[in-house]
Design a binder for these strands. Sequence first.
DNA 1: CGAGTGATGTTATAATGTAACAAGTCGCGG
DNA 2: CCGCGACTTGTTACATTATAACATCACTCG
Lengths: 159, 159
Amino acid sequence: MTFPSPHHDHATCVAHAVAAAEAECRRRGARLTDVRRRVLELVWSGHQPVGAYAVLEALAREGFCAAPPTVYRALDFLLAHGLVHRIERLNAFVGCSHPGIPHAGQFLLCTGCGAAAELDDPAIDAALSAAAARMGFSAARQTVEIEGLCPACRAREGA
Amino acid sequence: MTFPSPHHDHATCVAHAVAAAEAECRRRGARLTDVRRRVLELVWSGHQPVGAYAVLEALAREGFCAAPPTVYRALDFLLAHGLVHRIERLNAFVGCSHPGIPHAGQFLLCTGCGAAAELDDPAIDAALSAAAARMGFSAARQTVEIEGLCPACRAREGA
DNA sequence: CGAGTGATGTTATAATGTAACAAGTCGCGG
DNA sequence: CCGCGACTTGTTACATTATAACATCACTCG
């Protein structure tokens, strides 16, 4: 995954994400209900992590008239099925770039524009696993979040 | 840093941490006030991350009669001077093992006993830097948190 | 259809974190 | 010693994030 150009056709990003989610849910026998699909689309509304309450407000504006548990339940479902990731530093959620393929989340977070890019770098995995193993630690889940400036913002700030 | 034995003399851990903090603050011309020192000691009360409100309650029990901003300000001070780290996954804080030496926080978090061990593995740093550089991303801060089971809990669960 | 499971609605509340301003404290120069 | 200024703390109120508990709904399967 890379930082998307500001001119890319984002509608197809969302369409791809929803199609992939449909497929993944079918494969798993899980139900991608209306609320869940809509929450997924909202999380994909940009390439920036979205807070649960931002999703909630967006739903409210469309007349879904939901309460916090609705959103958190949908997000829990999407997390459980690997369709979104949680960004711990931001208490926010971002669409998964490769649903269906098991992978740990590794993220680059731009503090300039708020964009998030998902990595899946085997070298990082290897370094983490090696460090854990060296301590006799059995790793189950990893959180890797790197804050900084994306190429575009770097160019802008540098100018 | 490694996972401490349950029998180690924790009082000396705390004493070392406070002494190191005194030294570091002197070096930086920062004031380690009573509240800040006490909060530091409370964060060091175990090798497990401690929530801000847990610190608050502990202070209250000792008659410090503090409000949330007091604790958050002390924690902000300690963070700013590299005396504690924040664990994002847990919304909690843990004492820094090597104050004064600049380093990114990398943590092993045991889901069995709640213990946290700080790593400082150059290989992890290198892998993250390389991945960021490959994307043209300029990294400023990293969050690395690995959840799993520490050796002791692993033995216990395995049995 | 009817029972059972899973999904959603609804209300209230818990847990975490901050804004804004008042008051106090400490050190330093006059 | 005094008073100024910078920093620290107190205090109140509130914002943000997340969950518990229970009622109701809806879909599937026999």
